[in-house]
């Protein structure tokens, strides 16, 4: 028996919104410690890793480890039927081939059940090595979203350059070029509004804009985002989900044009 309850379905909606752009279907691995999800996008360029800790749930019970393959479009259809303030409970029997989403309104007057069929997905899990990144940039998530959105208009790829002065995002294309430079903020009232850079050595990497844009779909989950970079390893874009866990996106860098 598996049962996980969240006080607000809004958070689950946001989580789903954050991954459904990149993934068509995914396996939710449920264990005693919580719900994990790891999946690559179709083109195998990026990897999504979601972790929702069991203690973040209002109620969590997982008798036996369970892998639930879900079609995310269908899951989104179901979650659309919930109000943001509804309590959501995810339920599945051991070895079941369906999962049930139950939405309860705040005053308990309306209870709706949605059952969804599970899928057999043979997804391989990748081992992600512990890496000491050369640069870790923390910035407001909406700022990052804005930068990615703005730069997409100018080119297909974004060059991220991180030096001790600050971090620079640049894109260039047929219509022109764009450069956005963020300096570290000196004094901050709120931690999540700060731009902070932890740097061992300067890094310049190129990434596909479109993917960064897809990552920013997680913006509503967290006020702050962190970008971890090292030369020739995937970029990590991490959003902390308050009190619940985190979502991390790994994106392989573009191959330098000089090498071709």
């Amino acid at each position: 028996m598996f049962e996980a309850r969240l006080i607000s379905s809004g958070i689950l909606k946001k989580v789903l919104d954050a991954i459904k752009d990149l993934l068509n279907e995914a396996t939710f691995d449920c264990s005693d410690s919580g719900i994990q999800l790891q999946a690559m996008d179709n083109s195998h360029v990026s990897l999504v890793s979601l972790n929702m800790r069991s203690d973040g749930f209002d109620k969590y019970r997982c008798d036996r480890n369970l892998s639930m393959g879900m079609n995310l479009a269908n899951m989104a259809k179901i979650l659309k039927c919930a109000n943001n303030t509804d309590t959501v409970t995810i339920k599945a029997q051991d070895n079941a081939d369906t999962v049930t989403f139950m939405f309860e309104s705040q005053n308990q007057e309306k209870v709706s059940d949605y059952e969804m069929k599970l899928m057999n997905l043979d997804q391989e899990h990748l081992g992600i090595p512990e890496t000491d990144y050369a640069c870790i940039v923390r910035m407001p998530s909406h700022e990052f979203a804005r930068i990615c959105r703005d730069l997409t208009q100018f080119g297909e790829s974004v060059v991220i350059t991180c030096t001790k002065e600050g971090v620079r995002f640049s894109a260039s294309g047929d219509s022109g070029s764009a450069n956005i430079k963020l300096a570290q903020t000196s004094s901050v009232d709120k931690e999540e509004e700060a731009v902070s850079i932890e740097m061992q050595e300067p890094v310049t990497l190129t990434f596909a804009c479109q993917y960064l844009n897809s990552f920013t779909k997680a913006t509503p989950l967290s006020p702050q985002v962190s970008l971890s970079m090292s030369a020739d390893v995937p970029l990590v874009v991490e959003y902390q989900i308050p009190d619940l866990g985190h979502i991390r996106y790994y994106l392989a860098p573009k191959i330098e044009e000089d090498e071709n």
Binding site: H44, V45, H125, G127, Y250, L251, A252, I255
Partner: peptide, 21 residues
């Protein structure tokens, strides 16, 4: 998805960084 596929061109595969468990 088409746009993502197009954007993926020129990027390395994530498989080349992370090994299968």
């Amino acid at each position: 998805t088409k746009a993502l596929e197009k954007a993926a061109k020129g990027s390395k595969s994530i498989n080349s960084f992370f090994t299968k468990k």
